[in-house]
Every structure is written in structure tokens, then in C-alpha cells.
Design a protein around this nucleic acid. Structure first.
Lengths: 346, 346
DNA sequence: TACCCTCTTGACAACGTTGTCCACCCGGCC
DNA sequence: GGCCGGGTGGACAACGTTGTCAAGAGGGTA
């Protein structure tokens, strides 16, 4: 900027004024300055600007994993809203590790992001308190903050969605409905379990619950265990998108791999047909045979809602913090409509 | 930092030394300073640090769309390498618009990222020249830079991969092999077309080429056109992951939707069975019926390679810029092994 | 005791920008 | 002619950090 000033034969401050479109500069002078800027290929040093003004025009986003379609959809929506507000996005994946979540958040804070959107991995967020006190707005998405932290939060209707899935299966004549979910320490998994349990009421049977995560090994083991029960499930409810896919891979009745079974329905190990409803939609769910019935969340909607809340705060809204619960939607595609033993005759 | 200094009863510089683990501070003093830092909840202002040192410990990534699994996989790999080097990632989606690509790159530059990885949308990158001259290293990924720009580049073996796919289909007795690709203005699409054409040699027929992008409408139209030819294709080669999925959705012979056709093979509109090989792997390709044979790229490998090149430059490597071509891999799953009319008898 | 050396600490300038305040020029008015 | 006010431009400090350099303390040696 100094160079531009001397090249244009004006003072430093005049260049600053031109760059910031401030009033009080003669058009001719401004033109001379702009020419010098062009000639020297000058670009303002944002760090110095931040140092003075405190605004980075950058927001931070912490998610579990960009490579998970749920979070990449959310990411994209946040980015779009950020761009609308002239902001850029820094993002990081915590990989479900509380330590990494914390490191990312603090790294964003030292870089003085204007605001933060966090999908928490841990449940202790005391480390965020000082940042909140310095006035950095934070919005939690998908999972609520740990105790004692008072921030805006955007959640999906987890328990509701699970109940919808279970009632759908009950309505098709199923009474033995298994739940395969993520570790119950994860908020969304616990909530979905709660919805599942409440919707089942007295039909709830602990032996039909398997919450050992989405790794193929444990999923296979749990499916084998469920299939070997005296009174095995006639329907499965899977607790998230990754789990649904892992389960589908582990079921023997799938197309082109099924050996003795005819195509067109999913089966437990051993061969009994089984109905299936998954939480979370996923691409190609409609192309499988049969199509996979899901309770769909809207990741982009969640990202947009969180980002809009954040920018409302950045715009100066100091009202009490709120909690938003986004609705979910049942998408019937065939796998959840397989009639169970108690189905009403047509 | 000033507050910390006075709280600990030392000079500013001493605090700076402690914060940066510089030698020459008495352990007792350092302990006192650390206590004060803890007590005041101090965190270094990275902007000021950048202003002095010039390093932001941040790199920028411009891709087409984070929500596309190819790019989100690439993103994640870049992020992992960045974290290993103590860097954070800023990323943005250009949405295939050259103007947006440019804006993102320049926005990253004014924020003084240490380096950039770019999947270009446009083919004029003259605007990058000044940044290169100021010493910001740039790596192009997936597509090469426009003319005149001398930077490291990581590409997939696009033409090779297409040729592999075509030879695979030829080997199974197909002679009429159609190509459905993205707009030929996109580098990867053009390269794949080239590989397809070269592998077909005299069998190449312009009428079997459809390059109108991945939108469902045009894809459906092109499939209808191909099916109506006098000499219709017996095999399809699709030019990228999104296209493969769009084509699968548009084919009538799919499971649970097919009416008169038996399951287990893909069919053209009208009912003729058709073999299919796609460029790019995608999740669940193995669960479809039949499984979709693909030529798989490695998005994470590409991200890692690009990031490692970038950090080599940041580490001071000033050698001539290079071009890396990553191999691709044929994954047979059934759809590409359907025998064509010229298949050798068993 | 004088000297030198090392270890620790501090004062100060500088990074590039913006906010504050002041100086100047010009025309019009009393 | 003196004064005022608006329009323009510039000098300077400040943001929070780090690099440079020098000063002081303490110990060993001549």
C-alpha cells in the first residue's frame, strides 16, 4: 500500500480510502490510485486489516467427516450461506474424537473466525466458554452442547423420526423390530433409541437392540445374533445412513450374491425375509431391490438453518439462545412395506 | 499478551518467548507466565502473528462441489495431510463457474493462505500469475491449468482409464459401445472421450457419442436416441460417477421398476439388455443388480498427492514443476461382463 | 579486583492497515 | 479583507505480535 501511495503520489491514507470506497477522495485522485493499484498488482493484506478491525469475514465449521455425505451436504449449505454474506469457510473433521474437535475449535478461534458452527464429538464444551465471552457466536448442529453451555442449537427430530419408522413397521404387521444403532454415547443414537423404545412400548425387547457402531465386523455379529434368537426380528430399523449401508452389505439376500434365494427382498442370515427402514436417506436407496425405505433428514436444511442462525447473531441479534428441531420425512420405497406376520389381510 | 505480561510481572517479549517455546527463559519465569496465561484465558492473536511472520498455517482448496463424493473424498485427504503439517484448510466450491473459481482463489490469497490447491473450473488462469510471483505455491488437481501457467499438477489417467473400459467391453464381445460424457469443454470429459476413441479405432462411430452433461433430461433423451438407432449400442461407457448414476436411473430395466423384464440386467429403453462400465467408483455400486463395473479413480489418493506436492513446495523445494498421473483400476462387478454379440463361446 | 562470558530479560521497532485528528485550499459571505 | 465551511489530503498512533539488539545478573578466570 505504501508503494501504491508513492507510485500515485498520494498519502497512505488516501490509498486506504480508495480501497475501502470511503468518501472524500477526488475522483481524479481515486482514478490515479486505482491505476497504480492495477499496475503494481497490489492486494490488501487481510491480516493487517483484521488486526485493526477485528473482522476476518471467515467462519469456522467443525464436523465429523467431510467424506460422509450427510456432512458434506451440510457443509455445502453452510458454505452457500457464508458466500451470500461475503464470508469464507474454514472447515475441519473431528473424526468423532473430542480432542480433535477441541483442537479444531481453538485453532479456528486463534485465527479469529467471526463465528463457529460445531457438530460436537465430545460432551464437555467448557473450553468454549472463554470464546463465547469474547463475543464469538457459536451454533451447535446435529447434536446439543454439553451441560452449562448456552448456545443456539439445530437438531433433527431424532426421537420422532425413530418413532415414525417404528410405527410404519408396526402398521405393516411387524412386532419383532430390531434396532441397529451407533454407540449410545452419541446423542443422535441415544435419541433414536429413545424414540424406538417409546413407540414400541410393551413390545420393546432389549435383546433386539444392537448398538455397536457401523463397523462391518460388529454389524455382522449382531445380525447373526438376532437371526439366531428364538423369536427373531421380522423387521430392522437402522440408526443412520452408514449403518444402513453396512447392514445391507451384510445381509445375504442381496442381488447377484444370494445363491439360493430369489431376488427382490432383503433377508436375515439364514434366509428369513426381513423388512428394513433406515434413518437418513442415501443416494441410490431408490435403485436397490427392493428400494430402501428411509426416514430422511435434510442435511442441507440443517446446514442452512445453522448458518442463518449464526449470521443473525453476527448481525447483532442478542436475544436468548434457541433450539430448533427440524422435521424428518418418511420415504417409502419397498423395503419397509414388506408385510409382517400380523399384517391385516387385503 | 500485554495483560499477561503485566499479570506475570514480566516484559511482553518474555511472554512471547514462552508462547513460542523459545529458549532462554528461566523455568520459574516460564511457569509464572503460563499460570498467568491460564488465569486470563489468553490466546494468541494469529492475525498479528501473520502480520509479522507471513505464515498463516492455512491452505486453500478450491473444488467443484463439496457435496460431490469425489470431491469430498479428495477434500478429506487434503485436510488430513494439512493437519499432519499443522495447517488448517479453507475450502470453497466453484460450482463449475470460472468466475467463482477466481473469486475464491483471490479471496484465499488476500487472506494470505500459505498455499493453494485448485480444481479449476475455467481455463484462463492468468489471474494467478501475480500470486505465483509473490511466492504462493499452487497445485492443480484433477484438471490442468490454462496455457502459460507453470505449476505442479496431479491428474488421473483419464484417457488410459477410458481405453481400459472400452477394451474390457470389446473383450466381452461388444462392438457398438456408446459413450455418455460431460460437456467436452471439461478437460476430464475430453480426455476420456479421447481414450474411448483411440481404443475403438475404426469401430468409432460419432452417433454413439453423447456429451450433454449429467442432467436427467438430456441423459434420458440421449438414451432414447441411442436405443432408436438402426444399429443400437450393446454396451454403454459412462464418463463419470454422477453420469453413471443418472444413466442407471434412466434405464428401464432396473429392479423393482421394470415391469415386463426379468431382474438382474440393465436394459436400454425398449428393452434390449445392455452392458455398462462407468468411470469413477461410487458407493453401493456393488449392491446394485447386477453390480456396476467401473474404472475406479482414487479421490483420496489424488488429494493426498496434491497436498504432499504443495507441502514439499512449502518446505522449500524449488525444482521444476511436475505433472503426476495417477493410475486407475478396473473393478468388474457384473454389468460390464454381460457378453456381447461377438463374445467367444465358452 | 577487573574482566569476560553466559544466561536471562527487556526496550524498541517493525509488519500493513485503519481511525482520529489536523491542515490546507477554495469559494462565498459578512 | 477576514471568517467560515465544505471538500480534500496527510501525519500519526494504534492493533498484537515477533525480530533485533542491548542491558543486567551471576559466575568463573586472570
Amino acid at each position: 500500500m505504501k508503494d501504491v501511495a508513492s507510485a500515485a503520489g498520494v498519502a497512505l491514507k488516501t490509498v486506504s480510502r480508495v480501497v475501502n470506497d470511503e468518501p472524500g477522495v477526488h475522483p481524479d485522485t481515486a482514478e490515479r490510485v486505482r491505476a497504480a493499484i492495477e499496475r503494481l498488482g497490489y492486494s490488501r493484506n487481510e491480516s493487517a486489516r483484521v488486526l485493526r478491525s477485528g473482522r476476518t469475514a471467515t467462519i469456522g465449521l467443525v464436523i465429523e467427516d467431510v467424506a460422509d455425505p450427510f456432512y458434506s451436504g451440510l457443509s455445502r449449505a453452510v458454505e452457500d450461506v457464508a458466500i451470500e454474506h461475503g464470508c469464507l469457510l474454514m472447515s475441519g473433521s473431528s473424526g468423532e474424537q473430542p480432542g480433535r474437535e477441541r483442537e479444531l475449535v481453538l485453532a479456528f478461534c486463534t485465527r479469529r473466525v467471526d463465528g463457529l458452527i460445531v457438530v460436537p464429538a465430545g460432551d464437555d464444551h467448557a473450553y468454549l466458554q472463554p470464546e463465547l465471552e469474547t463475543g464469538t457466536p457459536v451454533v451447535f448442529a446435529d447434536r446439543p452442547p454439553g451441560p452449562g453451555l448456552d448456545v443456539d442449537t439445530v437438531l433433527a427430530a431424532n426421537a420422532d423420526g425413530a418413532a415414525i419408522a417404528v410405527r410404519h413397521l408396526l402398521g405393516h404387521g411387524h412386532r419383532r423390530i430390531a434396532f441397529l444403532g451407533d454407540q449410545p454415547t452419541i446423542y443422535t443414537a441415544a435419541e433414536r433409541l429413545r424414540g424406538y423404545r417409546e413407540a414400541l412400548g410393551p413390545l420393546f425387547d432389549e435383546r433386539l437392540v444392537a448398538m455397536r457402531g457401523a463397523a462391518p465386523g460388529p454389524v455382522r455379529e449382531e445380525l447373526a445374533r438376532l437371526a439366531a434368537l428364538d423369536d427373531p426380528p421380522t423387521a430392522l430399523f437402522t440408526g443412520n445412513g452408514r449403518l444402513t449401508v453396512t447392514v445391507l452389505r451384510a445381509l445375504p439376500g442381496r442381488q447377484g450374491h444370494d445363491g439360493p434365494y430369489e431376488a427382490g427382498r432383503w433377508r436375515l442370515p439364514g434366509g428369513r425375509p426381513v423388512a428394513l427402514v433406515g434413518f437418513d436417506d442415501f443416494e441410490l436407496a431408490d435403485l436397490l431391490a427392493p428400494g430402501v425405505t428411509v426416514v430422511a433428514q435434510d442435511p442441507a436444511g440443517m446446514g442452512r438453518a445453522a448458518a442463518e442462525l449464526l449470521f443473525r447473531r453476527l448481525g447483532g441479534d442478542t436475544g436468548p439462545s434457541g433450539r430448533l428441531e427440524l422435521p424428518v420425512r418418511l420415504v417409502p420405497r419397498g423395503s419397509g412395506e414388506l408385510p409382517g406376520p400380523y399384517a391385516a389381510r387385503a
